[in-house]
Amino acid sequence: MIDFLKKILSNRSSKFGFFIILLYVVLAIVAPFIALPYKEYDPYIVRQHGFEVEPKKPSLTYLFGTTQNQYDIFYAMIWGTRLAFKISISVVIISSIIGVVLGGISGYYGGFVDEILMRFTDVILSVPSLVLAMIIAVVLGPGIDNIIFAICCVWWPSYARMFRSEVLRIKNLNYVLYSKISGGNTFWIFKRHILPNSIYPVIIMASLDIANVVLLASSLSFLGIGSPQGYADWGQIIAMSRNWIMSSFSQPFSYAHTVIIPSSFIFFFVLGFNLVGESFRDIFDPKIK
């Protein structure tokens, strides 16, 4: 494992990627100190400076300026980072647990159970994830927990399939068969032999998937289906900037900050994960460089 990390960090672009991710992690951790919570009961509600409609330019008081209805962009971005991590990490953990349990059962026992479960994942995977998540989120109504649930519903099948194929590979290896003959019970074999040997691909896939979950979640909020109004969510802030595309002809850049700042926040987040992901792929598949 340490060897592996060393290999990844030897690449310049993946080093850059790691650096970006680290920055975001630090930003998410120190969020309460650099952007004091606005509403004590729910810090994710964006600070609002008055109720004027027109966005204000960045200044010393409002570091990144304000967007529509005077939502503070700096506050929204900082807490948005935390929200992005909150959503993506919970989705990834929940769906990998579901994936490991169902994929494990399906791969280990095979037969009828396997057939049913795999057909079920087939069905879910043949609906575009954005569409299915959109339907579930619409039905549940706005809310962070609802988004997490909706994304989990579309996210676990790929983990289940991946873990299943790993289990299929390992369950017929000699040491597992030997353990079976020696009288180890199923749960013990699973815990002791199969899980430690097949969990790594799932962990790697899950950690790289964080960016994709964030993308899906912010696409939902962008479409107005995700987080409640006024939440510190990158997608929502970008959606607000849609109303300020047209600016007066004398000053074409007066509202540019409402578009550029949230866009670059989400862009660098995804870029960081993609750079690291690319070098992962290079290590696993050294043929292509």
């Binding site: 993308l215 912010s218 696409s219 962008f222 997608g235 970008i238 959606a239 900037s241 849609r242 595309i245 047209m246 600016s247 074409p252 540019a256 578009v259 866009s263 989400i266 862009f267 995804v270 870029l271 993609n274 750079l275 690319e278």
Partner: peptide, 22 residues
């Protein structure tokens, strides 16, 4: 790599902003 990391709504908004807004 640059454009691959750009979410589609960011691309859309930026293109709309540049070509329509400006």
């Amino acid at each position: 790599t640059f454009f691959y990391s750009m979410p589609s709504f960011v691309i859309g908004i930026v293109i709309l902003y540049v070509f329509y807004g400006i």
